[in-house]
């Protein structure tokens, strides 16, 4: 598969001096044209993986082929095939958006006319035509991210790496970026490898998700598969009268094991084969009236919780500084 647009990773490891194994034996495969979401808390090893796959950091062990080329031995070929928008939009505050486009186009070997045409086209696509001649130092966070994405596309890469592309963006900018990534995959057939710490982003955008924690992939599949694996939805009910809470719990316990719930509520994870009608019927038979009754579909956070024993929200904040330090050290 020498001209494929896919990514194949085998037992990839990166160890930093004086640090744990930031990436600890990762195997994964991304099919051409797929959007692969790499989901994990801060410091899980997402950025380290991206740096290795984009040839910016050599792996300690293992191999990976990107666009059919070995990331260590064929770095030049890999770089020609990929575009990357890495964490912290890497822009020069003293240059304008248009000047960035010209520079990037020129360094990728476009001639002057092509540079101009492609630059204008991309500036328009990422919604920066009006701001094109302003210095980047005055751009908002969202504008910087969009310019960064536009720059990554100058040479029409077949594979796009996006490292936490929407971190710190407001909801509108995030949605705009999602739309553009979807368009790239659907219309241009670009393979996208995207890291994120947002469940929603992985859920909405990714065809397939790999969940990474402490340098290891703990779960992989389509969002639907992963949620189906956790399986079951949970049901949460609040009794109309507080004193019925005990009896409510007894009834719900027949349907599955107890799980965390709001203060006055009772929640259980559904067993197989039951549905909401059975629950309502049983409650009615016992004469218990409920104020509210919710069914929660499983989320990717439930998947993360199940696999790691922690919730993704807030997990890994203690690891984040460590990973940042190690990357800094590797860069030095």
């Amino acid at each position: 598969m020498s001209e494929s647009n896919g990514i194949e990773v085998e037992r990839l490891v990166r160890v930093f001096k004086k640090g744990p194994r930031a990436v600890d034996g990762i195997d994964l495969e991304v099919a051409p044209g797929e959007i692969y979401g790499f989901l994990g808390p801060n410091g899980a090893g997402k950025s380290t993986t991206v740096l290795m796959l984009t040839t910016l950091l050599p792996p300690t062990e293992g191999t990976a082929r990107v666009a059919g080329h070995d990331i260590v031995r064929e770095g030049g070929e890999v770089r020609r095939a990929i575009g990357a928008a890495l964490q912290e939009a890497a822009l020069d505050p003293f240059l304008t958006g248009r000047e960035h486009m010209r520079l990037q186009g020129g360094l990728h070997g476009l001639d002057r006319a092509d540079r101009e045409r492609r630059g204008n086209e991309l500036l328009e696509r990422v919604g920066l035509t009006e701001a094109a001649d302003r210095k980047v130092g005055g751009y908002s966070g969202g504008m910087k991210r969009r310019l960064d994405l536009g720059l990554a596309l100058v040479h029409r890469p077949r594979i796009l790496f996006l490292d936490e592309p929407t971190t710190g963006l407001d909801i509108q900018s995030r949605a705009a970026l999602w739309a553009e990534v979807e368009r790239l995959s659907a219309e241009d057939g670009v393979t996208v490898f995207l890291t994120t710490q947002y469940l929603e982003e992985a859920d909405v955008l990714a065809d397939r998700v790999g969940i990474i924690d402490h340098g290891r992939i703990v779960a992989e599949g389509t969002p639907a598969q992963l949620k189906a694996e956790i399986g079951r939805s949970s049901i949460e009910a609040v009794p109309a009268r507080d004193e019925d809470r005990e009896r409510l719990a007894e009834v719900l316990d027949r349907f599955g094991e107890r799980t965390a719930a709001a203060p006055k509520a009772v929640a259980v994870r559904f067993g197989n084969g039951d549905d909401l009608t059975d629950v309502v019927r049983a409650l009615d038979a016992e004469g218990i009236r409920v104020a509210t009754l919710h069914v929660h579909e499983p989320t990717l956070d439930d998947v993360f919780l199940e696999k790691t024993g922690r919730s993704l929200e807030g997990a890994g904040d203690e690891d984040a500084d460590e990973e940042a330090d190690r990357l800094q050290e590797a860069a030095a």
Partner: peptide
């Protein structure tokens, strides 16, 4: 990170 951007060009 601008240097990384340059490093990713030919």
């Amino acid at each position: 990170g601008f240097m990384s951007r340059l490093a990713l060009t030919p």
